[in-house]
Amino acid sequence: MSDAASSKSSGAARTLDLRRRPRRFERIAEAAIVAVALLSIVSVALILVFVGKEALPVLYSSVVHEEVTPLAMILPREINGHAAYLWQPVSEIPKYNIVPLFLGSLKVTVVALLFAVPTSVAAAVYCAEYASSRMREFLKPAIELMAGVPSVVAGFFALVVLASWIQRAFGTEHRLNAMVAGLGLAFATCPVIFSVSEDALRAVPQSYRTAALALGSTPTQALLRVILPAALPGIGAGVMLGFGRAIGETLIVVLASGNAALVDLNLGHSTRTVTATIAQELGEVVVGSAHYHVLFALGALLFLVTFVVNVITERALHRSRQSLSGSK
């Protein structure tokens, strides 16, 4: 400081010192942050590598092929004159057909989204467009808190309460079935879709709203014709996240689906999902056996499905975002 003062007073003789200062702390901090970020990325990548490594023997290992070939995992098996898709990994002749499992995942996910998408989007619309600010301040955190309910609790609720209601209402054949599991899943999916959709609706510029109203729209016309279309990419992203949550959720379906690997489209029948199968069987399986590798293949396929669905929707959303904003 005294240097600066004296050089200032010395007037014309002063020269500016513009040389680089050593900033050791800056560099250490930056390196530490990069290291932590890399660590998380690398560990995710390693999980993928590990799953892939354990899944791939399904394609080439003779140990696995003694019990099952990749083709046998998807094609039906002839039994007593009719074709059947069977997942019976611990029978005398193990059968590893993955069709019933993926069908089960699909059934519960569809039920969950059929219920969760309309209710969550409607709740988001209410919250963003109609609710008073006090109501909104109460409602939004309350719904988002649902995301914090442990899935074992949601699953238990579905198992004990929801299952009885649904059996009474629809007279379903099996007490635990795709509908019960799907509605249980919806419980976990709703807060995700709600939260993202609400943010998307709130992000629609106020100027669209005022323009619509100034042109003589009723509030409902403004909502349906301007605000919802403008928020659609965001709402789509929310549904996407909800899909990922629903198809990946495990505990709720373990508890509420009945876990029978049946191949039919009846929502009142028990069903078994990919995730529930992995969760229940992986702990019991002999490491390196055919069953072990098939379970990993299931996991890898599930990842592939969500990844592909994600990429496709992301592309579609990207396109609609561009067409909304007018860029090519």
Binding site: P205, S207, A212, G216, Q221, G326
Partner: peptide
């Protein structure tokens, strides 16, 4: 508001086509 129209400080077209923007008031 259908008799007394308004234009704002910042232009605020809807994220729709030019045609749909102009047709909006007629359609509603």
């Amino acid at each position: 508001r259908r008799h007394v129209g308004m234009v704002f400080q910042r232009s605020n077209p809807f994220p729709k086509s030019i045609f749909d923007n102009v047709a909006y008031g007629l359609r509603i």
